[in-house]
Structure formats: C-alpha cells, structure tokens
Design a protein around this nucleic acid. Sequence first.
DNA 1: TGTCATTGGT
Length: 588
Amino acid sequence: MTRASSPLKTILVTLLQEPLKVQSFAQVHCLLLTSGVTQDFSVLVMLAEFLASSQSPSSAYFTLKQTLIFPNPFLFNSLITVFTQTSSPQSAFVVYKYLVCDGFSEDKSTYPLVLKSCAKFSGIKEARQIHAAATKLGFLSDIYVQNALIHVYGLCNCYQDAGIMFDQMLVRDVISWSCLISVCVKGGLFGDALSLFSQMDVDPNITTLVSVLVACGRIGELSMGRSIHGLLLKNAAILGLIVGNALLDMYVKCESMDEARKVFEDLPVKDVVTWTSVISGLVQCKQSREALDVFHAMQASGMEPDKVVLPSVLSACASLGALDCGRWIHQYIEWKDIEQDVHIGTALVDLYAKCGCLEMALNVFHGMIYKNVLSWNALLGGLAMHEHGKVALSYFDWMVRTGLKPNDVTFIATLGACSHSGLVEEGRHLFASMLELYDVTPKIAHYGCMVDLLGRSGLVEEAYELVKTMPMRPDVLIWGAMLSACKTSGNVQLSQQIIGHLELEFSDSGVFVLLSNIYAANERWGDIPMLRSLMRKKGIKKEPGSSVIELDGRAHEFLVGEIKYPDQKEEILMILYILEKQMQIDGQ
DNA sequence: TGTCATTGGT
C-alpha cells in the first residue's frame, strides 16, 4: 500500500479530529482525494468515524463511498458502529439500507452491529428485516448474528422470538445464555432468568453472574445471591467495580444491610453507583438518618452526587422532615445544573409536601415538563396530609383529564384527602369509581381509608358494615381505624366487640394504645390495668416513641424520655402517661 | 473489525 507522506497525513488527521463545518470539511475531503492518503487504511477509519459523528447518514455514506477505490465492509461497519453510539442510532440502520440497495460491502460482522443499533432504538420492524436478509444470504448460521438476534428480540419485548432463536441454535455459547438471561432480567422475568441459569450447560462468565445477581436482588433470592458471591470470590481475589456494585445492590435489595455494608467497605474503588446503592438501600430499609450520614461521607470523599442518587437523598430528607438539607439539595441541583427529570421533580414535590411547604411543592410540580403517576401521587399525598381535600379532588380530576391512569396509591392519597377533610360523599363516590372506572381493585388499605373516612364523620355503623362485607380479612389497621371511630363517637359497646377480635388475634402495641385511649375517653380507668396485664401476658412491649429534629442540616433522632414533648407523638405520650399514672395508683 | 453486565421516587 502506498503510504502518504507523513506530514500531510498528520495535518489531515489533525483536521479530522477537529469539529469541522461541512464547508471546510469539503476542502479537507478534496485534499484527501488528491493526496493519495485515501489508500492509508488508518486514515480511512478516522474518516469513517469523523463522518458518522458529524454528518447525516446519507451524506456520511455517500462521502465514504466516493472516497473508496474499492468498497470495504470494514469501513462501512465503522460508520454503523459510530452511528449506533450517537443519540440517533436509527442512522446506523439507514447506512445498512444504503449498503443493501447498492448490493455490496456488507459482511457477516455488519449484522450484529446493525442489530445492536436496532436494540438501542427498539426497532423491531427493522430487526425482522435484518433477520430475513441474514437468513436469505446465509449469515444466520453465524453465532454472533444469532446472539445479537436474541438480544434485540428480548429488548423489544418479543420474548417468544428470542426463545425461538435460542431453541433453534445448534451450538450455544456463554454469550447466548447470557443474552437470554439478561433480556429476561430487563423484562422483569426474574424467575425465568434464574431457571435459565440453573440449566446452563456452559460455564457462566462474569457478565452472566452480574445479570443473575440483579435477578436475585429483585426477587429476594438471598441464598442464591450468596452462592454467586462465593463463586465470584473463588475466581477473583478483588471484585471489579461493576461486579462489586451488582453484588452490593443484590444485598441491598434483599435488605441484608450488614452484608451490603461489608461489600461496600471491601470495595477498593467506589463510584457514584456504589454510593447510590447503599444510600437508596438505607432509605428503603427506613434508615433515613444513616442514609444521610452515608451521603455526607460520599461528599466528603469527593464524589459528586448525580441525578440518580439525589432522589433517594431527598426521600431520606422527606421522611426525616430534614427540610434544610432538602432545600440545600434543591439549590445544589440548580447550582450544578443537574437535569431535573421526573425522578428529581417528584422527589422534590414529595419533600416539600411532607414538610408542609405546599406552595413550594406546587411550584416544583407545575414546573415539571413531564409528570408521571408518581409525581401526581406525591402532590396528592401532600394535599391529603395537610387537609386540602377539595384541592386534592380537583387535582385528581385534572390528572385523569391529562390521560394518566390513577393507580392504587393515587386512591390511597385521594381517599385520605377526603378523610382528612370530612368529604364523605366525595369519598364514597371515589371508592365506588375505583374498579368501575379505573380498573383498580380496592386493597385492604383502601378499605382502611373508607373506614377512617366514615369513622371520622361519625358514621361508625356504616364503617362497621363495610368491614363486615370486606372481601379480605380485616387487619390490625382496619380494627385500629374502627377503634378510633368508636373513640370519636364514644361507642363503647361496639368497641367491646372489636376488642374481642383484637385480644384473640393481634399483638401490636399500637392497638393497645388505641384501646387505652378509648377507655380513657370514656373514663373507664378501671379497665386500664387489665389492658396492661394483657399486654404483659402477650409479651408486648411498647416501642419507645421517637422524633427527629434537624440541627445545622443534620437530622437527630430522640427517643421518648430524651426530650419531653415530641409534638408528633403527643397523643401516644399522653396515653402512656395515663397508663403510668394508673400503675402508680395500683402500686399505692 | 461483530454478540451479553451495575444505581432512582409515592
């Protein structure tokens, strides 16, 4: 091959590395064509990469075609590869179409490459065309093509086609198995993924094990996750970052935080994914204070938070009422120009709503470009909590008008809003519409909302009728709501019936607090020691009440006894006070 | 020169 003079090549290579305007590229292209550099393969590869990253697929294809003396599949494959990596992977398929129309210059490597682009833009129609062409031209027997087809069919939710491809293969390698397992995981078919793993007749590789770990985490298969951990340790002394992160997240999802912490501490290198897994895990396990501590440690280590970790941190702030910390994060998002996607927006709405800043919650909510059901739920929950029943109902109507389908949480929030604002008729109507209009089957929590709504409005008998006709067994929350209703209306007789159920079935300290509340409201002081001895007999201990306050941006938890009157727990404290007093009287 | 892998909110 004739090599171009080295200085000219250097100049051209430099020019190709610059982001050029089309006009000046034309000049560079002239130089390329006239200098003989086009016979230098490495320059041609650079040209192909340059074209795909800066021009339309048609212009890139035809420019490359003009430049080549002999058509070369490798260079067209480079075009396809680079287009696949851009934000418009469809362009890769356009290049493939031109290749097919010209009737030359594709090879067997073209098929996996262009199928990968289809997987990226979910082009099932395009993938089927490629499948047909590969069959016709005899490329289907290539294991790379087969594996790529399994992948693309799986990602386009055509699991049956992926399975058929897999079954038709005469020889399957570890990639074939990994492809099918990973598409099962992506499609939420975690059980299928694990069953495929158990059927594997070749040794799994690291990638396979990562997919299997994800499946274990999602269905809480802790023991299998642990055995994969053992398998990994046998093969590598130190876990790589992706494998370590997958392992860590498996323990997190299985809520085995001690093991998760151990993996976390042993990881020699941590990235933002590592920190995110631990923080979101702690939030899910209701350890929000620890989550904020880890977040502060993450910042101290110099790791920059991103748009994925921040919703979890905001959620921790929301559940602790750590408004200052949440506000700081909101400012940080604006300062660092972090994309305010639907996750971040929803987490901010939730934070402000839970902390009682409804105006801010509404501001953020209305500023969101895209809202999903969870965004509306966060707002509705906030409105419910702060007794804006009518406003919540109008937002509910608005949500439905936008075409979004409410889910079960939407109804819990909206029924709760009715309950807190005493909107009985509206609540009844909403409850009836759940299944009828929105295809959402009422769960026990929805019955709980209705019992609460009716009970708070003094309709104890109607609430009890509803409990009796429920399609499921009433749980402790339902009876708790009934007892509260009895307390409000002073219906001791009905409460006795309910207590009968409770004494037999439940051992929850909250119910006993409610019971004592009823006795106290009816001045039945004599029954309280009976209650207390029943608690002792059933081995029930009252969990200490707790509250959290924020000081200098840090959340601090206080147990009962450490501070005198944590306002949120005032009612429980009062009851405990009554119980203690009664004990003192008994003792005298 | 081609096929498979990690983190998110009510």
